[in-house]
Write a protein that binds this DNA or RNA. Structure first.
Lengths: 241, 241
DNA sequence: TAAATAGTGTCTTTTAGACACTATCGC
DNA sequence: GCGATAGTGTCTAAAAGACACTATTTA
């Protein structure tokens, strides 16, 4: 910030200030579907609609710390792949007052997902249908386990669509895909992740080649146990930059 | 935002609120170098250091609108490729008070760049050296016309590095490259843009193939004028999704 | 041994890099 | 015609899709 006058810079009261919140897009893989955790609103506005977990940013708290605190306090887990997503600041996005929200992606392993459901029973998993999400179009449909289509509060449908697009965009050149998996995983499961996020089938042999050629995954020499048929080899992710 | 108590939601005074600003990363191509527009601070803190233009977000103003207003009021131009970049919210990023800033990319054509310099004489162009910017490392060096290395205020070096990385990441699959060019441009000039952003040389024939195969550029049938040697054909950008 | 999935081999297509070559313009 | 840049052709290498094939395990 520069070129502001002395007054602007030093008198905090000269401008009314907006509230700032963080909202979490909690995503995990449930079965083979990309699934978000949502809470149902009990109060106006948007009572009955479904919303992303969120909370206010304290005055002495960094944005990332606020998001982590919300994850701990309102979701009951302390580990997830964390990434700032986008900041939503339309004037009327909340009818009560001016609230600017910084949305975060929080990607969970299946274990973290289960922990969240256990510790935060008010959160409901809802599978995300992204067939309507294109480069421009951003129609997300959120469906509960019983098949009911859930209606999202505020601008949370926008936020969710932004999250899906971000995820898709980063899938090929970053390590976000591994955020959904435990330390050891099969190649088939990794392919499930990619198919869930991209929304379409993935060529098996080309996929395996690509993953191995990237040098990101290392065979562990161990195999799955308790499978009905031939057990697959377990790999682990190894960062290398 | 959900799962907040009634009080949290309805009493705006229960939390002290941070100030929210927008900062603009104004980038253009000057010669063949990626160049940012910066203002020198005259007051504490960071007096003498260089900073991105910015300003407070009004209580009844959307984030995007605030960024556009700052562009008009403090840069003196009304058109640029606009894109929200990232939100910076470390507690101590400004020593005076808690300020969260939403950074915006503002990419200018050469004409807009010249307009900005004419209308906002306090802004200084500084070429951005990104040789230190890798996937992880984010060392940006900013050099004035006279070769002097400029020191950046606040966390603006972080913001600038984030901008460069974003630009690089989007260069291949989006249309950001065209934001630096006038409506009609030569392929060589488009290649200059890509080389400036990627920081390295680009293969000519492969580049031309790629650009034409993408279907984004259309030959206009007209050519450059007043060139010293063979004039190149002028192309125009045509969005197609 | 049958069922089912893990994992491989190979052909084709596409895309990109290297680099020399031709074309065209101002002077 | 010379200098200099515009623009093309072609060879090669790397990456991705298609798809059939083999391998291995459980029940």
């Amino acid at each position: 910030m520069t070129e502001t006058t002395f007054l602007e810079e030093y008198d905090p009261e000269i401008y009314r200030r907006p509230s700032v919140t963080v909202d979490l897009v909690l995503l995990g893989l449930s079965g083979n579907r990309l699934t978000a955790l949502l809470g149902q609103r009990t109060e106006h506005p948007h009572a009955g609609k479904w919303a992303l977990p969120g909370g206010f940013v304290y005055i002495d708290e960094a944005l990332d710390d606020a998001a982590l605190r919300v994850l701990r306090e309102k979701v009951g887990i302390d580990h997830a792949h964390f990434e700032q997503l986008y900041t939503f600041g339309a004037v009327d996005r909340d009818p009560r007052m001016r609230i600017i929200t910084v949305a975060y992606l929080a990607l969970m392993t299946e274990a973290a997902f289960a922990d969240a459901l256990a510790h935060a029973p008010h959160l409901t998993p809802a599978s995300v249908d992204m067939s309507g999400v294109g480069v421009r179009a951003r129609a997300v449909t959120v469906v509960a386990k019983d098949g009911e289509r859930l209606s999202l509060a505020f601008d949370h449908a926008d936020i969710l669509a932004t999250a899906i697009l971000r995820l898709r965009g980063k899938l090929d050149y970053s390590d976000v895909g591994f955020a959904f998996l435990p330390p050891r995983f099969t190649l088939r499961r990794l392919q499930d992740v990619h198919e869930a996020i991209s929304g379409g089938p993935v060529n098996k042999s080309a996929f395996r080649r690509r993953m191995i050629d990237k040098g990101w995954i290392v065979p562990t020499g161990t195999r799955e146990t308790a499978t009905a048929f031939r057990p697959a080899e377990l790999f682990r992710f190894e960062r290398q930059f």
